[in-house]
Amino acid sequence: MYIYLPIAEQPIHSLAILGVGSLIGFIMGLVGVGGGFLLTPIMMFLGIPSPVAVASVANQLVAPSISGVLSHWKKGNVDFKMGTVLLLGGVLGSSIGVTLFNYLAKIGQLDLVIRASYVIFLSIIGSLMFVESMRLVLRKRKGKITRGKLHQHTWLHGLPFKTRFRKSKLYISILLPILIGLIVGILAAIMGIGGGFIIVPAMIYLLGMPTSLVVGTSLFQIIFVAANTTILQASQNQTVDIVLATLLLLGSVVGVQIGSKFTNVLKGEHLRLILSTIIILVSLQLLTDLITMPSDLFSVVIRK
């Protein structure tokens, strides 16, 4: 059944959107990331204008994140203190991001920046995660399970304003999570993502948080970043399509619940191996689109 999207100003098949939403929700529930970075390219591929895709995906992310956080909270898998510090940076970052988004749209380079950002971040993070999780899988297969340090200590841990995060068993400077939140917030607003695919590896590799807490805590901060992005996009650019977002989130909230039931079935390193493979494939696809000569070098933009 087709439904006319009031802001995107075009009809779209409602079952296709529900299906895409639930698949993305499933991945999101399973690994805690992947809501936006797969959804936004799919929406653009379906012909939704990129500003509407980015803003509406940010809107839909709120629902599965709420739903996911409540499940993880019940299991005690959320570090609220760390989450709050992260979201302070995130909310500030997403405000900067929406302003940048406006500027890029004005000079006509928004689409390029969105795509290029995806290629750069997805390929770096995908490869890092792939190598790391592959190493873990191979090591466990050989039977050499060695309990090492909780995390590596680097100069990042020497920054001032040190605070204790009991839940995460960390004693680090709050500047680090605020900075991570800020960068992720900027990218979240421009790329139409919650930022999970950047913040999850950052929490594991830069902050050294326990993997079990990472998913719930990242979902917690995504709620606020996504909500802030939605309100700013709506008020500054009028690009939030509530019909598109609602269809997507109806699918994704169901998917995320089913996905989260499987988190205890699959091992952490296997999850990360699967996710990193998906990330690498998406980035390769986007890179191919950027470097392949388009069938028509010219395109047309109809102004309001």
């Binding site: 839909q60 629902a63 599965p64 709420i66 739903s67 909500a227 939030v240 509530i242 977002a245 909230v253």
Partner: peptide, 10 residues
């Protein structure tokens, strides 16, 4: 739009 998403998620 945000409140609707929160409500549905909850």
């Amino acid at each position: 739009a945000v409140l609707l998403a929160v409500l549905i998620g909850w």
